[in-house]
Design a binder for these strands. Sequence first.
RNA 1: GGAAACGUAGCUCAGUUGGUUAGAGCAUUCGGUUCACAUCCGAAAGGUCGCAGGUUCGAGUCCUGUCGUUUCCACCA
Length: 872
Amino acid sequence: MDNMEKTYNPEFEQKIYNMWIKGKYFEAHPNPDKEPFTIVMPPPNITGQLHMGHALNNTLQDIIIRFKRMSGFETLWVPGTDHASIATEVKIVDKLKAEGLKKEDIGRDEFLVRAWDWKKQYGGRIVEQLKRLGTSCDWSKEAFTMDENCSNSVLESFVRYYKKGLIYRGNRIINWCPHCRTALSDAEVEYEEQPSNLWYYKYPVVGEDDAIVIATTRPETMLGDTAVAVNPKDEKMNRFIGKMVQLPLTDRVIPVVGDDYCEIGFGTGAVKITPAHDPNDFELGLRHNLEVISCIGEDGLMNENAGKYKGMDRLSCRQAVVEDLDKLGLLVKIEPYAHNVGTCYRCHETVEAIVSKQWFVKMKPLAEPAIKAVKSKKTVFVPQRFEKTYFNWMENIKDWCISRQLWWGHRIPAYYCDDCGEMVVSKTKVDTCPKCGGKMHQDEDVLDTWFSSALWPFSTLGYPKKNKNLSYFYPTNVLVTAYDIIFFWVARMMFSGIEFMEEPPFSQVLIHGIVRDSQGRKMSKSLGNGVDPLEIIDKYGADALRFSLAQGIAPGSDTRFSEGKIESCRNFVNKLWNASRFVIMNIKDDDSLEFPSRLNGNDKWILTRLNDVIKEVTINLNKYEIGIAAATLYDFVWTEFCDWFIEISKPQLYSEDKKQHQHAIAMLVYVLTEILKLLHPFIPFITEEIYSKFAPKGSVLMIQEWPSYNKRLVFRKEAKNFEELQEIVIAVRNMRNEMNLQPSKRISAYIIAKDPAYIKSVTPFFEKLCGINNVMIIENKDSIQEQVSALVTAGAELYIPLGDLIDKDKEIARIKDEIAQTEAVILKTENLLANKGFVAKAPQKLVDGEKEKLAAAKEKLIKLQDKLKMFE
RNA sequence: GGAAACGUAGCUCAGUUGGUUAGAGCAUUCGGUUCACAUCCGAAAGGUCGCAGGUUCGAGUCCUGUCGUUUCCACCA
């Protein structure tokens, strides 16, 4: 057998990964004899570097996909990356800036050349990082949102939407990021509470010696005001309706309108209306036919409509306007006010609402079937509560602004005639106007990144081309993602999949939380509390990282990452390594390793426990309770396999009797092999490496069959016997500790056993486990001639000769303590059984159990009391 | 304004449809190196499950209220 290092060292990970790749074990092909199981990876941005969020997300997917692969499914995990329109464009612009260039200086074509170069250079970075985690994706199907296939899907779906009237172009009020110089969808705006003020000032009523006082958080937008609104039911204010007011600092006169948008009692009861820079005002403007006067430009600066304030930024203009109003004596007061300000999700610049001509997806007709799919359980969220979030968004959805004033992305397939203005939407380039024969030019804008992401579950499989992969692997089975992109991505994939594939893109959505730092804070660049998964992998190995991410997580909830956690997982991996090393180094060349034909009691116990664990782990993995599955294995391997089974195997293993040795080693190898299979989805590298040390040459663990629960290897009676043995051993160890017995000190014990034959068979283990080197099985304690200390457990009574070892007072105290504990159990159980309701209504099994417990405790009490008398 | 989650040992968290004495890791205390592992082994200590009610034979678990923490959505100037 191969030698194994004394301490686990993860340096073999790369070698193992290469072996998997070489064997093409990750690749999936339509196979009519197998059921498909498909996952599409949430594509990381090409600008991204692997962070803990990716590590968690991909670890979970890999656990699921490896489990399903071993369970006999034709498993496909499609990897890929996202072109990340804004994020990438920002990178390229920054790079140009370093050269003293603006993107306009080099033009669109040259810009795109540079963007593609950038993608070539850095786009594969995160993919390589994912491989270090051990992800078993089918790299032969790796996709990119701007590759030919995906781009074709985008064109196809845009045109199909358009033909159905679900995409339109229009002048609407949209969110505008003055820094990124592009429109944003509602989902791309993040609100931050910022301290601000409410400014109160007067608008003089024309022709009267009266004025309306309004309150606003944004005085600078007054330059674009085209009305003042009051609530018609407001008795203090409705007298102004129909009058005109002088808009200060301008020569304009604007009307006072009545609209119940204006809430009675808030502020002064009057609102200034700026249709060009506020979505609510825009709507109100439509109702009252108000003029739309824009005073802030796309650069975020005041424009020509702002008169003398032209060219100022929004904040300076605000200050100037307030000062000027004050000079005119119109400023009434300033109150501090906390205000939510919309910011760009990419650059965090304050977004501006502006009116602009953009492309939109009409959402209502798409949302309806997407809601229905979840209501009818065609798609299920795990945990279910996230359905509520989904419904809430889908039911209140607004049209989706999909055009972006950027260059990096899918260019909108709309063409306009230079002469007559005719517009044609087409998958292929249109040069001449079908109406007037004039020259046509393509729309300058690109699509929202999320438009292509929305098609990901089928664009990656070849849509719109009909092909075997698409029909076999679609719809996918589970989508694994953090809750923070339910709106951006999950919801949009849902309606896109239903629209184009006529079926929801996945049957389950597994939502996980985010990885926080050890203090529960979000990991962020600005806090500098991020942990680099690659550093962790270098230091502890990918397996330790994976296990620490899988352990103790529950669907939908956040998890904390700490050095302590990763250390304990590394220790676990090391424990597995050493247990395996022990087993492997005890395999002799002529050992057959055949599963023993006759099983002993210890075998039957470990096999029972193994099968319980197989069952539990399988059930939990199927429920995506990955944390529970991991914990179950951790406990089983460490506590039961290592601490008990291996220990108890040793006398047999070292036995002179060859048969004994062969039996023991065969059992150890069998159980270890099953453990390696069960752990493989969680810690694939080390399990594969260990497996290669003793498995037949060329045999690969990752494609072994997942262990199944085998009823014939479950022996309840023997398992119970063993548990009673454990109880005895623990009781002796406990006593030895209390009595300060030297660990090396060997002692004798009389045992009255419930099952003497079994105890007799395990006699050799007592020395190893608790230092009893002389076990005397007796039938009756009367045969004991010397002073002894008693231990009473469920399976046996133990009498340890006192000799000169034991402190009498200590022994008395110990027995008294045990009596007290037993009495407490008796009292509690008696009370429970005296309760008529319990006896009548609780399941019979439970009642019987309590009765048994009571009887046993009473018996134990008598024995303990007898024992005490011997000392007094 | 609406919604959701969380509150269990000193710390980080499990605890599945209500059912024996509420579990684990880390930390703590005590004891241990001869042959898998000190990244280890054995043992111990530590919890009125946020609080108050209710349903039930039985509540950490279900219901109501309450306090605290967090998150998401909406956004009234």
